[in-house]
Simulated scan of single mutants.
Amino acid sequence: MKIFENIINHKISNITADELLKYGDQFQISITKPQASKIAAYLRGKSINIFNDAERSKLIKDIARLAGPETARQVNQLFIQLTK
């Protein structure tokens, strides 16, 4: 299971704005191109473990500042689905 966690965390730290938009469409998350660009730039190169509740919570707060609270809430729901 640890390898699965590493793959997901690695993907998040290397995600592009276009990939975020694609996942947004796929998971019904409302996100604009500028929001996706800001979020992707923020995540790029960061070592974040979304399976750790404290790290995920801090990440969601940062996303809320970048893209708004509703988008952050939806991204959190996606992260929760990925961690189950």
Rank of each mutant, 00 (worst) to 15 (best):
M1C: 01
S13W: 10
T32P: 06
K11M: 11
S30C: 03
S37E: 04
F51C: 03
K46Y: 09
A67I: 03
Y23C: 04
L21W: 05
Q74G: 11
M1N: 05
S57K: 12
A17T: 10
I48S: 03
F51W: 09
D25E: 15
I48H: 01
K46M: 07
I12Q: 11
E55D: 04
E70K: 11
I60W: 11
A36K: 09
N76F: 13
N52P: 06
Y42R: 00
I3L: 05
Q74K: 15
E70Q: 06
Q81A: 04
T71C: 15
Q35K: 12
T71K: 15
N52H: 10
I29P: 08
K46S: 08
A41F: 02
I48A: 06
I80C: 00
L21P: 12
A17E: 12
R44S: 02
L43S: 09
N14F: 01
N76L: 15
R73M: 13
I80T: 02
K22S: 15
D25C: 14
K22G: 12
E55A: 03
E55W: 02
K33G: 01
L21D: 12
I29D: 05
F79S: 08
I60S: 13
K61G: 10
Y23L: 14
E70M: 06
F27E: 11
Y23A: 06
I12A: 12
S57W: 03
I39E: 01
L21E: 14
L21Q: 12
I3Y: 01
N49I: 10
N14T: 07
S13T: 13
D62V: 04
H10N: 08
K22P: 07
I12R: 10
I48K: 04
D53E: 13
A67T: 03
L82M: 10
I7H: 07
L43W: 04
P69T: 14
S13E: 11
R73S: 14
D18T: 15
K22A: 15
F79P: 03
N49R: 04
Q77T: 06
F4Y: 08
I3C: 01
N6W: 04
Q35E: 08
I15L: 10
I31N: 01
N14S: 01
I31V: 13
I80W: 00
Q77F: 11
I8W: 01
Q26H: 11
I63N: 03
Q81T: 03
E70S: 04
F51I: 05
F27P: 02
D25H: 15
L43N: 07
T83Q: 11
R65A: 11
